[in-house]
Design a protein around this nucleic acid. Sequence first.
DNA 1: TAGTATTTGTGCGTATGTATG
DNA 2: TCATACATACGCACAAATACT
Lengths: 247, 247
Amino acid sequence: MPQELKHPQPRSDRRKRMGGQIQREIMQLILDRGLRPGAVLPTETELMDDLGVSRNSVREALKALQALDIVEIRHGYGTYVGEASLTPLADGLTFRTLVQLGGDDAHALTEILQVREILEEGLVSRVVKSIPEEDLDELDAIVARMMTRAGQGEVFPEEDREFHEVLYRSIGNTLVPQLLGAFWNVFHRVAGARGWAKDPSPTGTARRHKEIVAALRARDRERVQAAMTTHFRGIEARAGKAMRGVG
Amino acid sequence: MPQELKHPQPRSDRRKRMGGQIQREIMQLILDRGLRPGAVLPTETELMDDLGVSRNSVREALKALQALDIVEIRHGYGTYVGEASLTPLADGLTFRTLVQLGGDDAHALTEILQVREILEEGLVSRVVKSIPEEDLDELDAIVARMMTRAGQGEVFPEEDREFHEVLYRSIGNTLVPQLLGAFWNVFHRVAGARGWAKDPSPTGTARRHKEIVAALRARDRERVQAAMTTHFRGIEARAGKAMRGVG
DNA sequence: TAGTATTTGTGCGTATGTATG
DNA sequence: TCATACATACGCACAAATACT
């Protein structure tokens, strides 16, 4: 019964703040202060005072921003401006693909592969004339490692990832490897979550990568395009077989 | 010092749960129960009991999932499974671009435009032979509206957006328009946040769209590619001028 | 090596706004 | 109009992690 005035702020001031408003205020605070990725953010207590909201509200907003990789929270230490990477994209696409597969539509993964193929076809066309010899040497070394592993019946996801990263390094676009990496992550996480079999023919996969490098060395755009298309036909075959086996 | 046993649960049970663990459990719950987008989620109270955590923890996890568009929260009504759209990607890229521009690096927007250009070049190559006549008619109608608006000195962002959506409709890939839409949003939100001038030559922009449709009607791949490239040179000119003017 | 201060993580109780019936 | 159910928000207390003394 005694509930006198327990409100530190008059009611009229502290309502109508819902709907991601606090998140946007924190983002604006970062922009206004010119904070860069890695910079330290005000503590939760300071944000409470600055924004005039409770600690729970601040924490919920920070959690949302953390999910977008806009802030980075370290327990017992502080909160920092994040890199705004494409991790959220990978998370969202993975979830979406699994949810749609859970129904009976195995189309989502094919769509992601198609986008990745379009991207990579356009990318190789742009590097075929300009990729430096040293990058080609590095690609040869990666393919050699692939061959070795394939000869032992092993699979080589790390080399595969590295291959495509080096392949487009000379573009000088930081968004490209992140985007491709996100797609790559989705594919492998979905494959893992559904318990799909590994690459049934590592040797063939390694050979297709080798052909891409050879075509690049020849500076032959047509041949590079064809090699890349063949490479994706191999991936689709794996995915298609697995999806048919499950669905 | 009297801090007897105020813990409703023994300490050994409820620790080691941090780091997005609750979020993953909720995602797994959705997948396990086969819930589809739009399906109703358990209430916060039910999630508290199911996961054995407090309401604050549940709410923070739900807020994070909401930021990823994995769940949708409706005030006073309930929580639902979300569409897992690419809204988080647009949010993250927008923030990232603004943060980098805040430094002095105007490169981020150029990178996004480059990725979009590569994607659209590959996409038009795939539709040039297969896009149905009725879609071309629709594109003609959109271009006509562009021309009308341009003649009145107006700008036409909505028509621009619609154009590219109809253009790739026949691909049948739902990810493509979402991805392009996300990039489109980033560009215009960044432009708006920096107070950039509108398109200085709407007539020229409309004419470039018209040429794309004409090239598609001729089913001439080379010409379509060239028209698309010209279209992006126009966008880059706008962005470049604005960025130079600000930076 | 131990202790303390700071900061984030968690839990609980409660009041309030909102939509449904 | 009223009652119910739910999300939203606030405030407090304590746990746990980290840094610094």
